[in-house]
């Protein structure tokens, strides 16, 4: 069974926000809405301060709290793990937004394509589906890969099938130590962060 996931190599990300810009251009999100963001995080106290750039967005969780709370069933989860929103069903109650521990959901009246409904990263699902229909491999062939991954200047972002033992991201996860954000909440996020090579 296919299970799409994203991997961010924190050692490589330089915080250039090219992924953010590429996402905004592709998905035509309005000002203030960033489906793909890169956080600039400082940890520690002077002089022991470290800085990290952390790409965030929808984690396409195994157990998405946003889907469970949605009163209209607008939020759904596909068999391949991608969490989607039906903009024609959504009532814009924003319950999903307060249920998401990753602040990945937006609702904007300025969104000309999706006004006043919940929106978020889709893993560029249209590109994945179109690519698969052409026999392409998401995460390997750029035409079938999310634009944030394609645009990354440092090859910090990767995409692929985490259930496929031969996939690019399975190799990265095997070769490196990694974590997922807020795993303790039981959401099962499908966004992995690499932080060091495997011991």
């Amino acid at each position: 069974m296919t299970r799409w996931a994203m991997v961010a190599d924190l050692r490589r990300c330089v915080g250039c926000q090219t992924c953010t810009a590429a996402c905004k251009q592709t998905n035509a999100t309005p000002p203030g809405v960033q489906w793909r963001r890169v956080l600039d995080m400082e940890v520690g106290e002077y002089p022991e301060v470290k800085r990290a750039f952390v790409p965030v967005g929808c984690m396409h969780c195994d157990e998405p709290p946003c889907m469970h709370v949605c009163p209209s069933t607008a939020t759904k989860k596909r068999a391949d793990g991608i969490v989607t929103i039906d903009y024609d069903l959504c009532i814009g109650c924003a319950y999903c937004a307060v249920a998401c521990p990753y602040q990945a959901r937006y609702k904007s009246s300025d969104d000309t394509l999706r006004p006043d409904v919940a929106t978020k990263c889709t893993f560029c699902v249209e590109r994945i589906d179109a690519g698969l229909a052409q026999g392409l491999k998401p995460g390997v062939d750029p035409e079938a890969t999310p634009v944030c991954v394609n645009s990354c200047i440092a090859q910090a972002l990767h995409f692929g099938d985490v259930e496929d033992a031969q996939s690019n991201i399975r190799g990265l996860l095997a070769e490196n130590q990694h974590f997922r954000m807020h795993e303790e909440l039981g959401t099962g996020p499908r966004f992995y962060y690499l932080w060091d090579k495997a011991p």
């Binding site: 889907m67 709370v69 009163p71 607008a74 069903l89 959504c90 814009g92 109650c93 409904v117």
Partner: peptide
């Protein structure tokens, strides 16, 4: 956000 779709609130008694 979508006031005229308010009745959609009744669709998901299974988990919401």
């Amino acid at each position: 956000g979508k006031k005229f779709r308010a009745l959609n609130v009744f669709i998901n008694p299974f988990t919401s």
